[in-house]
């Protein structure tokens, strides 16, 4: 099972990025192998619109099963939901802490988008 965590840095000790669609990268953690890789999201960071949808599509293509991020908007949530990806919310902690809390079942699962979409 693979978990994609939006993050501001490049290691397990980097902080979670609260933004989903406009995070600079995701850390993709493989729970079985206990390994991780990074995937870049910079292209969506500067997208005029649809960043959440495109990012969600990338997550689906990366075959992640779970996303951990700070906030997720309505279109991103709809896309992730259609891709049967579960979304868990965490802020102000490191990727490592978020993964630990996820494993212990401490992170809340988003049942719907928790923020409004934003328009430029």
């Amino acid at each position: 099972m693979k978990i994609a965590v939006s993050t501001t840095g490049e290691s397990l000790d980097s902080l979670i990025d609260e933004r989903f669609g406009r995070t600079s990268q995701f850390l993709l953690y493989d729970l079985e192998k206990n390994t991780y890789s990074l995937f870049d999201n910079k292209q969506n960071r500067t997208a005029p619109q649809g960043a959440g949808i495109q990012t969600a599509q990338n997550i689906i293509n990366a075959k992640a099963d779970v996303v951990i991020t700070g906030n997720v908007g309505p279109k991103a949530f709809r896309t992730l939901n259609a891709g049967k990806i579960k979304v868990y919310l965490a802020t102000g902690i490191t990727v490592r802490e978020a993964l630990e809390q996820y494993k212990k079942g401490l992170l809340p699962e988003a049942q719907d988008s928790n923020v409004e979409g934003h328009w430029l």
Partner: peptide, 23 residues
């Protein structure tokens, strides 16, 4: 379709296609 759309208005998933009319 989703590769073509520059506005992200269509998202093609493995067994579903989402349309976002507002985009």
């Amino acid at each position: 379709c989703s590769d073509l759309c520059q506005f992200g208005a269509i998202s093609c998933l493995k067994d579903n296609v989402l349309v976002f009319p507002e985009l």
